[in-house]
Amino acid sequence: MTEQLLRLDNVGYAYRGKRSRDVLVGINMGFRAGTMYAVTGPSGSGKTTLLSLLAGLDDPTAGRVLHRGRDIRETGLLAYRRDTMSLVFQSYNLIDYLTVRENVLLGGPGDPDELLERVGIGAELRGRSVLKLSGGQQQRVAIARALAGTSEVILADEPTGNLDEETEASIIEVLKRCAHEDGTCVIVVTHSSRVCAAADEVVDLPKFNQVAN
């Protein structure tokens, strides 16, 4: 079996304040390169929190997030995010005053035209403002931007949540190719049955979460 690229080692996360609340408790799971994962669970089960911990955007209140066996806090969260991670958001997070091509250039050294071709964005659209694209086209640009870096891991938060069935299918295919052809670890938080059916492994988060109900 392929060595785990990322591992959550007894990870917990709690919101602290007047009403402290545990979101994740005792999470143990691993993720391998070349594999597409779908992370599922009802709203409020901690899926997006899990993704934020894997991305180094939040720090666990218990346990460790390991990259190649090393605590990402030892690496440094900024360096870890820069060198290891690409994020695809449901809201796209594109820069609205830049063109399609310019948005992809922000992602890293990859050839933007080659990447845009790969995700199905033709040459006639690449000089346009991203505001003139459909939602599905904007999501493709966001994925191309994620691919522009040299990341080992792509984390996607509900990347098909606002898309029609045809566009969803094309986005799923792009993510699968990232995993199977590029050897990337692709982790998708989703409610979509189609994404789950396409994934190599489905992680039902509540089964791993020891938080008291």
Rank of each mutant, 00 (worst) to 15 (best):
V195M: 09
C178F: 00
S86L: 06
P109K: 13
D113R: 04
L106R: 04
Y15L: 14
Q210G: 15
T160Q: 08
K18E: 15
V39E: 02
F89G: 05
M29A: 14
I187Y: 00
M85R: 06
M36R: 04
R126Q: 12
L205P: 04
S151A: 15
V188F: 06
G44V: 09
S134Y: 13
G108T: 02
I172K: 02
C185V: 01
V186P: 00
R145E: 00
Q4T: 13
G69T: 03
F208R: 12
L53A: 07
A144D: 01
V174M: 08
S192E: 05
L51Q: 03
G56N: 09
V119K: 01
V11P: 03
D157S: 15
I27R: 04
L53N: 01
V88M: 08
A199V: 05
V189T: 09
R7I: 00
G107H: 01
N162M: 13
R118P: 03
D204K: 10
L51N: 00
V25M: 13
D204A: 13
V23E: 07
R128A: 12
R81Y: 02
L77E: 09
R70M: 14
V189H: 05
K47T: 05
Q4Y: 03
V202C: 03
G161E: 09
L155W: 02
T49H: 07
G136F: 08
A197L: 06
T49I: 10
T84H: 08
S20H: 04
A156F: 08
V65N: 04
T61H: 11
P60H: 07
Y15R: 14
T84V: 13
G69V: 00
G110E: 03
G12I: 08
T75G: 13
Y97F: 12
V100D: 03
V25E: 12
A197H: 07
G30K: 01
T99V: 11
L106M: 13
I154M: 06
G17P: 09
G56D: 08
G41I: 07
R126N: 05
E3M: 14
I172H: 00
L77S: 12
N213F: 11
G76A: 12
D113V: 06
L115A: 04
G44N: 11
Q137T: 12
L57F: 10
L98S: 09
L125R: 13
P112R: 01
L147V: 07
L8I: 01
S43W: 10
T150W: 09
F89E: 04
L116G: 00
S193Y: 07
R177L: 03
M85A: 07
A142F: 05
L98Q: 13
A144H: 01
D59C: 15
S193Q: 14
E168L: 03
P159K: 10
V188E: 02
P159H: 10
G135R: 14
P109L: 01
N213Q: 15
Q90Y: 11
V153Q: 05
A146V: 01
Q139V: 10
A62F: 00
A79I: 12
R32G: 04
P206S: 11
L116T: 00
K47H: 11
F208L: 15
E117L: 07
K18H: 14
R7H: 11
D9H: 11
L131C: 09
C196H: 02
R194S: 10
K47R: 14
L77Q: 09
D96G: 15
L51E: 02
A179D: 03
T2C: 12
R19P: 05
V203C: 04
P206L: 10
M36V: 07
R194Y: 02
T150F: 06
P112D: 04
V202Y: 02
